[in-house]
């Protein structure tokens, strides 16, 4: 994000001197603001984790007995799926928060300031990433409490968590587009769910894809949630993971590469 205007000579001495907008500095300022918001509303963080905890308990103790996965215990199979599910649904908050800022006129204020244009989006997605770090750590603790025993080495597990966070970050950009296109935060929320539900449930997150009907397998095998879950699962179970990790990274990079420019251009035009 360069600022060509800053390099021109001022035509009038009364025009305020312009400091070059700095995308990193501005994004950090916005991230600071969004993190303060999370800190001031800790209950939102709590609510965000209640649902995944319920899912852990439900799949571990209710459905888990009926789901058979060859070679591994179901809880070890399940936890990578839960991590991904948690951050996928959590990424919705990026869009909802942006829609709220638009609705309240805050985006108008930001757009009237001499700041970097992409900073509002970069800052928010960064703050949501920090938030996801907390959520994923919490879910690891919950997993360990219900018997999750990852077989991978520590670096492999850290890499798995890194993939989960990277995927969450890429989805933040997707939902930034939804949030910037929605009339209000409720619409943003309502519009996001139908995108998320099939991705999460028609995937390898909770059950082996081979147990699904043929037509659904085609979808489930070729969508990002399955790709991320497979890579994280391979890493946390321990064993060969290179090709899965590569596929997951490709999805993450691809989603950011497509969604970030669209989101930024939406932001510029947002009314």
């Amino acid at each position: 994000m360069s600022a060509p205007a800053a390099t021109l000579a001022p035509p009038s001495p009364t025009v305020t001197r312009l400091a070059r907008p700095h995308v990193v500095g501005d994004a950090l300022t916005i991230a600071w603001r969004n993190l303060l918001n999370i800190r001031r509303n800790p209950q939102l963080l709590v609510f965000a984790t209640i649902q995944p905890v319920i899912f852990v308990l439900m799949f571990r103790y209710v459905f888990g007995g009926a789901i058979h996965v060859t070679g591994v215990s179901y809880v070890d199979y399940l936890m990578p799926g839960i991590f991904v599910q948690t951050v996928v649904f959590g990424s919705l908050t990026t869009g909802v928060g942006l829609a709220e800022d638009l609705q309240k006129g805050l985006v108008d204020r930001f757009r009237s300031l001499p700041m970097a244009r992409s900073a509002v989006l970069v800052g928010r997605t960064l703050a949501d990433l920090v938030r996801n770090v907390f959520v994923v750590i919490l879910m690891c603790v919950v997993g360990l409490a219900v018997g999750w025993r990852p077989g991978g080495s520590l670096p492999e597990i850290v890499a798995g968590v890194g993939l989960v966070l990277g995927f969450a970050y890429s989805l933040s950009w997707l939902f930034a587009i939804v949030g910037l296109s929605a009339r209000d935060s409720e619409t943003a929320q309502a519009a996001s769910f139908p995108i998320l539900a099939p991705l999460v449930f028609a995937s390898s997150a909770f059950v082996p894809i081979s147990s699904m009907p043929g037509w659904l397998q085609v979808f489930a095998n070729h969508q990002p949630v399955s790709a991320i879950v497979n890579a994280v699962r391979a890493l946390t179970l321990g064993g060969a993971a290179a090709s899965q990790v590569f596929a997951a990274l490709a999805w993450i990079v691809g989603i950011v590469a497509i969604c970030a420019p669209i989101a930024v251009s939406r932001y510029r035009r947002a009314v």
Partner: peptide, 16 residues
């Protein structure tokens, strides 16, 4: 950008 450095805007809704 240079315009924005020289203006202040308070819109119809308190943008806080």
């Amino acid at each position: 950008m240079r315009t924005r450095a020289s203006i202040g805007l308070a819109g119809q809704y308190a943008a806080l």
